[in-house]
Amino acid sequence: MIAFEDLYKQYSPQIFRVCLGYTNNRDQAKDLVQETFVSVWKSLPGFRNESHISTWIFRIATNHCLRAIEVAKRMPAAELPFDLTETQEESPEEKLTFLYQCIAGLQETDRVIISLELEGLPQLSIAEIVGLSSGNVRVRIHRIKEKLTQKFKANEQFR
């Protein structure tokens, strides 16, 4: 039996980044981490190793993200406006903020897929977590990556 504390120590930073990428809001991300680990705590005794534990935890976390109605109300998916006219070199924080803004412009499931990909999960696990075929996930990741790099390039052009 895996100890809850060990799971929390190992996965909470990753889960937090995924939730933060999805919500673009630290407080909501913290709430979602909390809800995820409440579910993990409740379901851990019944976990039967049918899937890898990381896949299981990320599935719980992403389901909580997708079901969070407050997030949906606050952040409807929309295209990012390119009105960025600053000329200074971007700091890492600004780059991260811009990445989150770009992710916010994606569909909900694409937000989850790219968050898991950036977190370094194998594409097979991502497919299992979101319930798509691995081929479909591969194609989607390619498209999302294209969109994100285009936005970053456009952003650099305006600088």
Binding site: F4, K9, S12, F16, W41, L99, G120, L148, F152
Partner: peptide
């Protein structure tokens, strides 16, 4: 490059394991 930016997110401020329990 995107992953490097992604992983630069600060994850401090999360409760410690005992507090989370």
């Amino acid at each position: 490059d995107l992953r490097t930016i992604w992983l630069s997110a600060k994850t401090d401020g999360l409760p410690d394991p005992d507090e989370m329990k």
